[in-house]
Design a protein around this nucleic acid. Structure first.
Length: 954
RNA sequence: GGGCGCGUAGCUCAGCGGGAGAGCACCUCGUUGACAUCGAGGGGGUCACAGGUUCGAUCCCUGUCGCGCCCA
C-alpha cells in the first residue's frame, strides 16, 4: 500500500538501511563478476568538512552516473573516502585546544599532538560521510579510505622515494610563498592574488661618490617600490637597458639609504620604463621577480625578515656583511619589528633624511594565503620540490591524444595553459599533521631518502662509517639504539602537501603499491566528476602521478561541473549569510527534491542558481509522481508475467509504449553525454506532461469502465509505464523511486539493481562475442538479452492520440476564452469529417466528452450556424453555442486566426518565390515549405468559410 | 596584458543554420472520484548592438558594448 502522503524524511531514513543491508552498492558483487567494471573515485572531502551545496551537486552527479551504470549491468565501484586536509585539520584541533584552554600544540609536542588529532578524527571525522549517505550517494561504503590510512601512506612514501631516486623530487633553496601566520611554505596554487589599495613610494638612492643633496636630482636616483621596508635587503638598482635617462648610470653604484651598503646599478629588462620612475630596487630575497634579476646579475640574497615576518637584522650575517661602522644601531632599533610597523618607521626615517621623494596611491595585487588570509611573504628557505615540468609532459600528451577528454571540452584549453607553464611544485609543509617526509639527515646535512627509517639509517651509518666520521662500532650501536643516534641522524620534520597524497587517490585507494585484484580490475577509472576550481590542485596532479606510476591516465573522462550559487547568482559564503545548507533543504523537502533541482540546473556553461523555492518545485514533482502511483494502485494496475508492451492492441496503450520508449532514449542519451539537465528535464516532462496529463487522463474511462480485454491491457500498461518511469528516474531520485518500486509490486530485487531499459552501446568485445555466441550461449552477457522496448515506435498511434490531444486542447482553449463555465456541457459537431476521424470518434468519445466538457459528439456536412469553429489538424470542429457566445468576440478570434494564416502564407511565399532559395536549399526543405503553404492555405479557406457563416448567423 | 565563458519572456535558463521554447512568477477560471504539494486557459520576447558569410542567421564569422571568472 502506498501511503496517502509523500513523506520524504520517513522514506529516506528507511531506504538507506535497506541499501546498506543488501550491500547493493558493493563493488565486485558475485553476480557481476563477468560484468564490465565502472569506476569513479570520489573527490575526497576534507575530513574536517561538512556537506555544502558544492558537495551536494558534485556527489549527485556522480551518483546519477553510478546508479545509471549499475542499472545498465556494470560492476560499479564508487570509491569513497576522505582527505586528511593538513592545514585545515591541524587548525581545527589547535582551535579546539585553545577553546578548552588546554596546552597548545608546541607545549604538547609532536607525538602527543598527533595522537590528539587522530582522536579528533575518530570522534568527528565521519560527519561528512554520513551526510553523503543522507544525500543518497551509492558509494561502496565498505571500501572507505582515508589519505592517512596505513595503505595509502605506504603509497605516498613509495612515490616520494621513487620520484626522488629518479631525480623528480629534489630539495632546493629558493623563494617560496611563506605564510607568516601558519609558519609554513605553501604552493603557488594556495596563494590568492587580492587587489589592494596601497601606495607607491618613491625613494632617493644617493649615487656613490657624490655628496647627497635632496635639492640636487643629479646626486641620487629615484626608485619606486610598493614595499619600502624590504629596502634593507636591496642588492641593486635596476634600469631598463634601453632607457636613455639612466644609461649613463649603469655600472655605477648607489649607497643604500639608512643602511650604507654600496650596491650596483644594473641594466635589466625586468625594469619597466613606463612604471614608477623607471628604476626599481632589486631585493632578491623578498620578491620573485627580483630573485630572477638577482640571479642574472649574481647579487647577494639578503633576507631581512624572520619566519613571522619580523625584521631580523641582529646577528644576520648576510645583512651585516660589508656594512660600515655604526650600522649596528639601526639594526638594533628595527630588529623584531613587524613588517608593517617597520614600514612606517623606515619611511619616516627616510623622510627625515630627505630620501623620500613622494608617495603616490597605487592599486596592486598582493598575495594572500588561502587558509590564513594573511599577506604571503616570498621567503628564502630550503624546501622539497616536484619536477612538475617533466611529469607534465605525458599528462599533456594524454589529453592531446584523447586518451583523456574533458567535458565540456573547453576546459582542455585551461588545462593545457597551466600544464605548459607549470612551475616546480613545492611539496614540503612545516606542519605536523600529514605524511612526514621520508628523509633523514646526517651531521653534515647529507640527505638519505628511503621507504623505512631502518633502511635510511642503515644507509646513512654505512656512509659515515665509510667516511670514517664514526667507527663501525659506533655505527652498530647507533643502528640498534635510537637514542644513541639522536642528534647524529635526524629525520626531516616536514610533512607533504595534502594534495601530494590526493594525487595518488585513483590507485592508492585500490591497494597500490600492492598488486591487488582491485588495482587490476578498477584502474584506470572511467570518469572523474569535479569542479573547475580544482583542475590544477587535483586533476592535473592525478594525471601526472597516474601516468608516471600506472603508465595509464587515471580516468578517460573528466566531467567539469559549475558552481552552485544563491538565487541572485552570488557565491555562497558564510560572511554574506547566503549559504543554503543542503541538510536543511533535505530536512524540508527531501534529498530527492534537492538532487533533482541540482540535476535540472546542471547545464554545461552556467553556474547553478539555487533557491529553496526551486527545491520546493521539485518536491512537488515528487508528490505528483507519488500520486500517479497511488492512482495506478487504486486501479489495481499490475504488470502480468511476460507482459510485452510492444504487443499491446489498444491505440492509447501503444501510444504510451511509444512515448515511454522515446523518453527512455532521450534520458539515456543525455546521461551518456553528461547532459544531466537535459536528462532530468526529459523525464520531468514525460512524467508530468505525458504520463499524468494525458495518458492517465485518457485511460480513466477505460479504467472506470467495465472489465474486459481493453481494461486488462490498460491496467498492465499503466503499471508497466510506471515501472519504466521509476527506472528512468531512479538515478536522479533514488529514494522515492526505490520506495515506490518496493510497495507497488512484488519484486525480484531492488530497483537500484534492476536492469535499465535501454541497452548500452556495445563495446567491441561484446560485438565480437555476439558474432560467435548464440542466444542460448551462457557466455552471452545477460544485458544483451534484456528485453528492449526502448526502440519501439508507433507513428499511427502517435498521430491518433495527437489528434485527441489537439482536439481537447482546442476546445478547452476556446471555452476558456469564451468564459463558458466548466459546469456547462456543450455539444460538439465534427463538420465534413474524414473517414479516419469518423472511425476514431467512437474510440475516444468518452474521453473527449469528459476532458473537453462536452454534452455529445455528432457529425454534419457543415458546421451549424453561429457555432464556434475550430481547426483541428485540418478539419473543422464546431461548438454550436448560439446565444451563449458573443458573436463579435468570435469574429475577433477568427480574424486573429486569419491574420496568422495569412502571415504564414506570406512568409512561405517570400521564400518560394526566391529563385535562389529554390535552387540552393535542400530539396526536403523546399518540399517542407510547400507543404506548409498548402496547410496554411487550407486553414485560411476554412477560416474564411467560418467567418462567412458567422456573418449569416448574425 | 593573456585566456575562458555569458548576454533569448519579469526571473532562472534550454535551443545554436530553415515556422521563438520550458520552469517559476503573473492574470482568469476550477471542491470532475491520484494529486490545491493540484487541474484548465492566458498574456508577455526588434533572441545585447553593428557589420559579414548564406537562398535563409537567435544559431556561423568579425567587431563594439555590458557582465562574470581564471592566469599574469
Amino acid at each position: 500500500m502506498i501511503e496517502k502522503n509523500y513523506q520524504p524524511a520517513d522514506i529516506e531514513g528507511r531506504m538507506s538501511l535497506i541499501w546498506e543491508d543488501s550491500r547493493a552498492f558493493s563493488a565486485g558483487r558475485p553476480d557481476r563478476r563477468d560484468a564490465r567494471p565502472f569506476t569513479i573515485v570520489i573527490p575526497p572531502p576534507n575530513v574536517t568538512g561538512s556537506l555544502h551545496m558544492g558537495h551536494a551537486l558534485n556527489n549527485t552527479l556522480q551518483d546519477i552516473l553510478c546508479r545509471f551504470e549499475r542499472m545498465r549491468g556494470r560492476d560499479v565501484l564508487w570509491q569513497p573516502g576522505t582527505d586528511h586536509a593538513g592545514i585545515a585539520t591541524q587548525m581545527v584541533v589547535e582551535r579546539q585546544l585553545m577553546e578548552r584552554q588546554q596546552p597548545g600544540r608546541r607545549e604538547m609536542g609532536r607525538a602527543k599532538f598527533l595522537e590528539r588529532v587522530w582522536q579528533w578524527k575518530a570522534e568527528s571525522g565521519g560527519v561528512i560521510v554520513n551526510q553523503l549517505k543522507r544525500l543518497g550517494a551509492s558509494c561502496d561504503w565498505s571500501r572507505e579510505r582515508f589519505t592517512m590510512d596505513e595503505g595509502l601512506s605506504r603509497a605516498v612514501v613509495k612515490v616520494f622515494v621513487e620520484l626522488h631516486r629518479e631525480g623528480l623530487i629534489y630539495k632546493d633553496k629558493r623563494l617560496v610563498n611563506w605564510d607568516p601566520k601558519l609558519l609554513t611554505a605553501i604552493s603557488d596554487l594556495e596563494v590568492q592574488q587580492v587587489e589592494v589599495k596601497g601606495s607607491l613610494w618613491y625613494l632617493r638612492y644617493p649615487l656613490a661618490g657624490i655628496t647627497f643633496n635632496p635639492e640636487d636630482p643629479m646626486s641620487y636616483i629615484v626608485v619606486a617600490t610598493t614595499r619600502p621596508e624590504t629596502m634593507l635587503g636591496d642588492g641593486a638598482v635596476a634600469v631598463h637597458p634601453d632607457d636613455e635617462r639612466y644609461s649613463h648610470l649603469v655600472g655605477k653604484h648607489v649607497i643604500l639609504p639608512l643602511v650604507g651598503r654600496r650596491i650596483p646599478i644594473v641594466a635589466d629588462e625586468y625594469s619597466d620604463p613606463e612604471k614608477g620612475s623607471g628604476a626599481v630596487k632589486v631585493t632578491p630575497a623578498h620578491d620573485f621577480n627580483d630573485f630572477e634579476v638577482g640571479r642574472r646579475h649574481s647579487l647577494p640574497q639578503i633576507s631581512v625578515l624572520d619566519q613571522e615576518a619580523r625584521i631580523n637584522l641582529v646577528g644576520n650575517e648576510d645583512y651585516l656583511h660589508g656594512l660600515p661602522e655604526g650600522s649596528m644601531q639601526l639594526a638594533e632599533e628595527l630588529h623584531g619589528l613587524d613588517r608593517f610597523a617597520a614600514r612606517k618607521q623606515i619611511v619616516a626615517r627616510l623622510e627625515d633624511f630627505g630620501f623620500l621623494d613622494r608617495i603616490e596611491p597605487n592599486v596592486h595585487m598582493v598575495p594572500h594565503g588561502d587558509r590564513s588570509g594573511v599577506i604571503i611573504e616570498p621567503y628564502l628557505t630550503d624546501q622539497w620540490y616536484v619536477d612538475a615540468k617533466t611529469l607534465a609532459q605525458p599528462a599533456i600528451a594524454a589529453v592531446r591524444s584523447g586518451a583523456t577528454t574533458f567535458v565540456p571540452k573547453n576546459w582542455e584549453k585551461t588545462y593545457f595553459e597551466w600544464m605548459e607553464n607549470i612551475q616546480p611544485w613545492c611539496i614540503s609543509r612545516q606542519l605536523w599533521w600529514g605524511h612526514q617526509i621520508p628523509a633523514w639527515y646526517g651531521p653534515d646535512g647529507k640527505v638519505f631518502v628511503a621507504e623505512t627509517e631502518e633502511e635510511a639509517v642503515g644507509n646513512a651509518l654505512g656512509y659515515y662509517v665509510e667516511q670514517e666520521v664514526i667507527t663501525p662500532e659506533q655505527g652498530r650501536e647507533m643502528a640498534l639504539d635510537r637514542n644513541k643516534r639522536a642528534g647524529f641522524i635526524t629525520r626531516d620534520e616536514d610533512v607533504l602537501d595534502t594534495w601530494f597524497s590526493s594525487a595518488l587517490w585513483p590507485f592508492s585507494t585500490l591497494g597500490w603499491p600492492d598488486e591487488t585484484p582491485e588495482v587490476k580490475r578498477y584502474y584506470p577509472t572511467d570518469v572523474l566528476v569535479t569542479g573547475w576550481d580544482i583542475i590544477f590542485f587535483w586533476v592535473a596532479r592525478m594525471m601526472m602521478m597516474g601516468l608516471h606510476f600506472m603508465k595509464e591516465a587515471p580516468f578517460s573522462t573528466v566531467y567539469i561541473h559549475r558552481l552552485v550559487r544563491d538565487e541572485k547568482g552570488a557565491k555562497m559564503s558564510k560572511s554574506k549569510g547566503n549559504v543554503i545548507d543542503p541538510l536543511g533543504v533535505i530536512d524540508d523537502y527531501g534529498a530527492d527534491a534537492l538532487r533533482f533541482a541540482l540535476a535540472r540546473g546542471a547545464a554545461h556553461s552556467h553556474d547553478i542558481k539555487l533557491s529553496p523555492q526551486l527545491v520546493e518545485t521539485n518536491r512537488n514533482f515528487a508528490t505528483k509522481l507519488w500520486n500517479a502511483c497511488r492512482f495506478a494502485e487504486m486501479n489495481d494496475c499490475v504488470v502480468p508475467a511476460g507482459f510485452d508492451p510492444t504487443k499491446a492492441r489498444d491505440t492509447l496503450n501503444r501510444w504510451i509504449a511509444h512515448e515511454t520508449a522515446r523518453a527512455t532514449r532521450e534520458v539515456t542519451e543525455a546521461i551518456e553525454a553528461y547532459r544531466f539537465n537535459d536528462a532530468a528535464n526529459a523525464i520531468y516532462r514525460f512524467v508530468w506532461n505525458v504520463y499524468c496529463d494525458w495518458y492517465l487522463e485518457l485511460a480513466k474511462p477505460v479504467l472506470m469502465g467495465e472489465e474486459g480485454v481493453a481494461k486488462t491491457e490498460t491496467r498492465a500498461m499503466v503499471a508497466w509505464a510506471r515501472d519504466e518511469i521509476l527506472k528512468l528516474l531512479h538515478p536522479f531520485m533514488p529514494f522515492i523511486t526505490e520506495e515506490l518500486w518496493g510497495v507497488t509490486s512484488k519484486r525480484d530485487g531492488l530497483l537500484a539493481l534492476a536492469p535499465w531499459s535501454r541497452k548500452p552501446s556495445l563495446t567491441p568485445e561484446q560485438l565480437a562475442m555476439m558474432s560467435t555466441a548464440t542466444i542460448n550461449d551462457p557466455l552471452m552477457p545477460p544485458v544483451l538479452l534484456a528485453f528492449d522496448a526502448a526502440e519501439f515506435t508507433d507513428t499511427s498511434a502517435e498521430a491518433e492520440i495527437g489528434w485527441v490531444v489537439d482536439l481537447v486542447t482546442a476546445i478547452r482553449s476556446v471555452r476558456a476564452e469564451m468564459n463558458i463555465a466548466p459546469a456547462t456541457l456543450t455539444p460538439l459537431v465534427l463538420a465534413g469529417a474524414s473517414d479516419e476521424t469518423r472511425e476514431r470518434v467512437p474510440r475516444w468519445s468518452d474521453v473527449i466528452r469528459r476532458m473537453a466538457r462536452l454534452a455529445d459528439i455528432s457529425f454534419a456536412d457543415r458546421p451549424p450556424e453561429g457555432a464556434v469553429q475550430l481547426l483541428v489538424r485540418g478539419e473543422v470542429a464546431a461548438l454550436p453555442l448560439k446565444g451563449v457566445i458573443d458573436l463579435s468576440a468570435e469574429k475577433a478570434r477568427l480574424d486573429k486566426e486569419l491574420a496568422k494564416a495569412e502571415a504564414d502564407i506570406k512568409r512561405v511565399d517570400a521564400k518560394l518565390s526566391n529563385e535562389k532559395f529554390v535552387a540552393n536549399a535542400p530539396e526536403e526543405i523546399v518540399e517542407e515549405e510547400k507543404e506548409k503553404r498548402e496547410a496554411a492555405e487550407a486553414r485560411k479557406a476554412r477560416i474564411l468559410e467560418a467567418l462567412e457563416r458567422l456573418k449569416n448567423a448574425a
